[in-house]
């Protein structure tokens, strides 16, 4: 077990080093360098030079690379070009809202996916499973921003049951926690819906697959009820691939939240990323991308560890 964890940790660290390098390469691949993009029309050679000096861009790229690493290891992500505030400060300001959205959507998606997937897996090939399949496809095929807007239109405008925007920051919740929660419902539903579609389909398929395995026949031959076999034997084995796919789908869920946050004007990282990307604020963009990469790598690591707990073979081999 310890051996497996150590091995996975080493791999993850290696992956993170590559990730940081890729992000560095990305932000420095801009034609003419960031100064050009920032200055735009005003990009006289002198102004560019001055700005480069101010941003620390006047040294060779390999020096910049190592300086960047040094800063990263100290937890410094640089300053936003536009807002002139430390990136870490900006990120921590928006992070809370995004985490709420992210975690809420994931919990919703996992709970629904397990329920729906069980029904689909058990009725595989018959009408309930087909019906579920049709809904899964429909949920997947609708653009996220369209779904979000429709939610706003109906829940917020037509029926006026839920607020559609104007959420405050998690740190200074003025109107109270209930109001904050009400603001979260629609964004979570929108992001969650997209994830439920893929996750439940995947889980349904793995329940179906597990049900066709020999040990199910053995368990039934022992006289267990189908329900006991399903919950006592099949569920645990079918969860393993779900955990793996969940770990892998973190970036996908974030992509969904970028779009959803911009639909709901939701002050989260996705929204910040979008605004910063549009205004070429590289330190902010690379900071967020990096954070996300780290979350994903750690998420995958966690998924592997959970799988180790679910499947004894992973530990002992």
């Amino acid at each position: 077990m310890i051996r497996m964890i150590t091995k996975r940790l080493l791999t993850s660290i290696f992956t993170l080093i590559i990730l940081v390098s890729v992000v560095f390469a990305m932000t420095h691949a801009t034609p003419g360098g960031p100064a050009f993009s920032i200055l735009g029309q005003k990009a006289t050679p002198a102004a560019v030079k001055a700005l480069n000096a101010r941003l620390g861009l006047n040294v060779p790229w390999w020096d910049q690379y190592f300086i960047w690493w040094g800063h990263l290891l100290q937890g410094r992500l640089g300053f936003s070009y536009l807002l002139n505030r430390p990136v870490t400060e900006l990120i921590s300001e928006y992070l809370g809202n995004t985490l709420m959205l992210y975690i809420g959507a994931i919990v919703l998606a996992v709970v629904l996916a397990i329920g729906i997937g069980l029904v689909q897996g058990v009725t595989w090939g018959r009408w309930p499973a087909r019906l579920i399949g049709a809904f899964q496809l429909a949920a997947y095929a609708l653009p996220t921003f369209f779904v979000g807007t429709m939610f706003i239109l109906y829940f917020g405008v037509e029926w006026q049951v839920l607020p559609t925007g104007g959420i405050t920051n998690l740190r200074d919740v003025h109107p109270g926690i209930i109001d904050y929660g009400r603001h979260l419902v629609l964004p979570i539903l929108t992001v969650g819906l997209l994830s439920v579609s893929g996750l439940s389909r995947y889980f349904g398929a793995s329940v179906h697959e597990e049900l066709n395995k020999d040990y199910v026949r053995t368990a039934l031959a022992k006289g267990l009820t189908f329900r006991a076999v399903l919950f006592g034997h099949v569920l645990r084995n079918a969860l393993r691939p779900l955990v793996t796919i969940l770990g892998l789908s973190f970036p996908g869920i974030f992509v969904g939240s970028v779009l959803v946050e911009s639909v709901f004007n939701y002050p989260g990282l996705g929204y910040l990323l979008w605004r910063s990307a549009l205004s070429q604020d590289y330190p902010v963009v690379s900071g967020i991308v990096l954070l996300l990469g780290v979350i994903t790598v750690v998420g995958n690591l966690l998924a592997d560890l959970v799988n180790g707990l679910l499947d004894p073979r992973e530990i002992y081999d």
Binding site: D214, Y215, R217, A221, K222, N237, L310, R313
Partner: peptide, 16 residues
């Protein structure tokens, strides 16, 4: 009635 199947590796639940 007790049952014994072919290939016990797959006939036993691997995670129990």
């Amino acid at each position: 009635i007790g049952m014994v199947f072919q290939n016990p590796l797959s006939a036993l639940n691997p995670s129990t």
